[in-house]
Design a protein around this nucleic acid. Structure first.
Lengths: 147, 147
DNA sequence: GCTTGACCTCAAGTCGACTTGAAGTGGCAG
DNA sequence: CTGCCACTTCAAGTCGACTTGAGGTCAAGC
């Protein structure tokens, strides 16, 4: 009773079976065996799915996520690459923080036109003094989400 | 010389003209007039585009973003709705923070299997003690996210 | 031993967010 | 006045991430 079949994983993770099959196809997760036809998933898969969901939420594509943590546990990417990814996320956290504060400001500031409110402008400028990740005109990523 | 045509906006914002037209179509930005055939954009559009990019980065769809800040400046959504959006973003910031720290941990922790490392598990659990936004099995958003 | 229901595969469809291509327009430099 | 070139529209194509549907399999309960 160690293993779960896809329905249970779906129930526990909130991710549809079709998506789970898709993830397996994409090499993000892997089932350990089959019971008849049925995939059997180990409990770790739930943790992996959480990681995947966080990665998606960060705007990484499934491909990038597969790169970060391979289907069986966690990838052995060079430290530098991982730190670089972490830095990207860090930049994004700052952007989101600015967005959050901007939204709250908009909700509360009584000024008629926000475009002229200095507080507003300061908040927007907050994000990306030097907009690293999103400064490429060639292949704008995320979309996603997140892209 | 107050207004810019699409090429200049593209150059200043890093967003392709085709995407800008698409955004206008979608009601996210608006040109003030035409010079011949050419759309003329006011300088504020750059600020709006920044806001849009932040919104995308937060995983909102163009539709949602259009809802938050209409094409002409900033929307007058009820305060409560805006604060709710802000809360969503806040939750996401926490997730990203956990992801960032997890990545850094993975980069530095010498343990062979992270799945068993308590620090690792704690980090992953960090995000979403009760995963509000992403707990729906019906219509999983973001993607692009992304996309 | 037969039905049931949860699973399987594989192809095709969908949706959002753009991009690409073809065919046309029009301001401005020479 | 002419040519150029950045713009225009509109339809169709693309890509990622899934979902849907048709047709099939199989372990378990009656």
């Amino acid at each position: 009773m160690k293993f779960m079949d896809i329905g249970e994983v779906a129930a526990r993770s909130g991710i549809r079976p079709s998506a789970l099959r898709y993830y397996e196809e994409a090499g993000l997760i892997s089932s350990v065996s089959r019971h008849g036809l049925r995939r059997q998933f180990p409990p770790e898969v739930l943790l992996q799915l959480k990681l995947i969901s966080m990665g998606k939420s960060a705007g990484f594509s499934l491909g990038e996520i597969a790169g970060m943590f391979g289907s069986n546990g966690v990838a052995d990417l060079p430290r530098a690459v991982l730190h670089h990814k972490a830095d990207e996320i860090d930049r994004q956290i700052h952007e989101l923080t600015a967005l959050r504060d901007t939204l709250r400001h908009v909700a509360d500031c009584p000024a008629p036109s926000h475009m002229e409110c200095p507080t507003f402008r300061r908040l927007v400028d907050m994000a990306g003094k030097r907009g690293g990740k999103h400064a490429n005109a060639k292949k704008p990523k995320i979309g996603p989400a997140s892209r």
